[in-house]
Write a protein that binds this DNA or RNA. Sequence first.
DNA 1: CTGAAAGCGCTTACAG
DNA 2: CTGAAAGCGCTTACAG
Lengths: 350, 350
Amino acid sequence: MSSQKPSQRATIESVARHAGVSRQTVSNALNAPEKLRPDTLERVLKSIADLGYSPSQAARNLRTQATRLIGFRLAHAWASDVGAIAGRFLDALSGAARDRGYDILVFSAAEDDDEIAAYDDLMRRGATDAFVLMQTHGGDSRTEWLRKRGVPFIAFGRPWDRRQTAHNWVDVDGYRGMRLTVDHLVEQGHRRIGFVGWPSASEVGEDRRRGWLEGCQAHRLPTQGLETRAANGIATGTLAAEELLSLRRPPTALACVSDAMAVGAMRAIEHRGLRVGTDVGVVGFDDSPLATVVAPGLSSVRQPLEALAEKTIDVLVTILDGSAGSTAGSKPVKLLFPPSLIVRESSFRI
Amino acid sequence: MSSQKPSQRATIESVARHAGVSRQTVSNALNAPEKLRPDTLERVLKSIADLGYSPSQAARNLRTQATRLIGFRLAHAWASDVGAIAGRFLDALSGAARDRGYDILVFSAAEDDDEIAAYDDLMRRGATDAFVLMQTHGGDSRTEWLRKRGVPFIAFGRPWDRRQTAHNWVDVDGYRGMRLTVDHLVEQGHRRIGFVGWPSASEVGEDRRRGWLEGCQAHRLPTQGLETRAANGIATGTLAAEELLSLRRPPTALACVSDAMAVGAMRAIEHRGLRVGTDVGVVGFDDSPLATVVAPGLSSVRQPLEALAEKTIDVLVTILDGSAGSTAGSKPVKLLFPPSLIVRESSFRI
DNA sequence: CTGAAAGCGCTTACAG
DNA sequence: CTGAAAGCGCTTACAG
């Protein structure tokens, strides 16, 4: 009948009473177990288990002036981006964070300015300890804002500005990914490899393009006239690929800047009555969900997102659990991860 | 040279000093402004603005025994699901939460049991006030677990079990979505409408199938032999659609259980030298990113995720900000949202 | 309408 | 190795 809570949550106080020790000792059992005599430690740990005790995060936060929460922006863009990888990254990120005793707080923002406003609000309230950024670009105002205020952060994406002040970042070597693609296609016997890219405004796209260009040059293959560009998408990829396929001397393989473009290219190939893989090889980029749900399976450059997420959390935890606040102490982490090529039927000649 | 913090964060104490009032008055200015004389209120508000003060979330949490954080599980599945809508939902959810003074904490879990373990951990630590669940299914152990412990939560997805105890949920009426699809196709002059579905184990899939079935019956259209099933995917959708298209009397339109299946069906149609839309109409489901990046554009049933997210947060905030804890007070919200049909070229006959 | 006081549940020097 | 004490920054009855 009564509406009293089934069981009052255990506190450090109730655990101390249960174990017959002081609150300090319970705290030590959790935060500095080496300070306790083994038998005492065991007794306290048993009480903790018996009572199902976990220290109140709120109390701990207030006392330690930290939240163990890492902020991450949800971009509208990637919620509506086919073949997006941000979901996989966020998943890996929260897993890695959890392993280190942190959690991820997400917030949505339409523009970079909204993201900065969110940073400001969250930091002011002391609701987050650090941030992870994505989709960096030249003249990124976010990194500058955070750096000036000494907020711990790390970017997934290098600073594309050369004059950018140094800060922590990890990124995937898109250039290298494309070199892998070209090498693979050459191995499959291709000598004319086209590139289906994005408009040149995309810094990520240009990096990948350079990999195709220099890869072909390294193998002494032609590149002149063998590239097209279009906005990301399947239909746009089809149109772009058709352009190359209708050349007098068309390429026999297409290195694509994304999986969506590659899936579009596959359609263009089929439209011309050619077979994907056997007649014209296709390789995508990102190894997104798209790559495995199409037929034939799409070869694609895979980003090691799990490793990136681990490192991302690692860097943040080092800052946060280290000499709290002295971000300036050690020099920034700048790490380019090598991607790998996942070969499926779309690039298999025989 | 010195490493002291650029500016000590403002506290209620510093604001009080700055405005020449007591801490209580500052707190009232924020939490009960009607208790202050207008001129005092204005003065305090100005000090708050001048000092850039926001109450410490940690202190507030400890005092109010609430975190204003809502937990949301990231399923591995949807990070790798093409045409997934969970990203859009999470985006809408965090936007709606922010508007109500809440934030979203995400955590990843592989299985339902891991999700429950995370609930347990988060509640024990008092790190979250409530949860939002997705992908409910018959015999869902999560809802039962939460209900027993009186944890505030709401599910996106109805309880597919009929014997399930009542709890808050919102869902989209898939049945109705399919009826819209059938009505639309009939309007376009189709009299033989096939259904490309998922294996019958999917409760969501069966709900949508029933919409196709009864929709056709309502229009006195044949359904016998006009349905196929396959696991979600583009390639699987192609195979399933080919089955129907190779019938002696093939359907002239395909109602598909998802966008991925629909995109696959589009390919099957093209393979047979037919034109999507003009010859064979295709409609997908979810209006995922896929629908707009293919050509022709894919007609699709759109789920009102933004409205669902608003309602989801609304329900939770009502519980949380109301008579804290008395979940049992009012009767549970059970709301089925009507979807809408977005018509694109894939179902346009002329 | 405003002020002094208690207390939320921890952690961490500081004595013993 | 253990215990008593201070204090993190709020909110909220409770007097005045």
